[in-house]
Design a protein around this nucleic acid. Structure first.
Length: 106
DNA sequence: CTCGTGACTCCCG
DNA sequence: TCGGGAGCCACGA
């Protein structure tokens, strides 16, 4: 069950993203321990999003945009987000200054 | 062990 | 502002 620590952390981090907020691939990778493993986060989402029931739609690229190509999840992700109250600009981008999730250290 | 593969980023021109 | 190229990295075959 436990995969690598990195993967494990990524999964947990994504699970912790609250409704109405998003996080970037790079951010998650950094928090998980490898600032440069952003691509790995994408792979993890692709392979574990379902089995681990991850809120994959809350993960976007550093521009606040959806990385999935049209008819390959883009529309779906967009709907999930809007349904959670995340507003998308006309360019289809999210205002990260308002929706970016920042884990708090308590 | 080596090689190919990304739902990414960063760096330039 | 935008596009192309190179870097990076865990994972499955």
């Amino acid at each position: 069950m436990p995969r690598s620590d990195f993967t494990e952390n990524v999964v947990e981090l994504i699970r912790d993203i609250p409704r109405g907020q998003v996080c970037t691939y790079g951010r998650i990778a950094a928090l998980a321990g490898n600032p440069r493993a952003a691509r790995q986060v994408a792979r993890i989402l692709h392979t574990l999003s379902e089995s681990e029931q991850l809120p994959w739609h809350r993960v976007v690229n550093r521009d606040g945009g959806i990385s999935l190509p049209p008819s390959h999840g883009y529309e779906e992700q967009r709907q999930y987000l809007e349904r959670e109250g995340v507003q998308l600009s006309t360019d289809g981008r999210i205002d990260l200054n308002h929706h970016l999730w920042q884990p708090d250290f308590t």
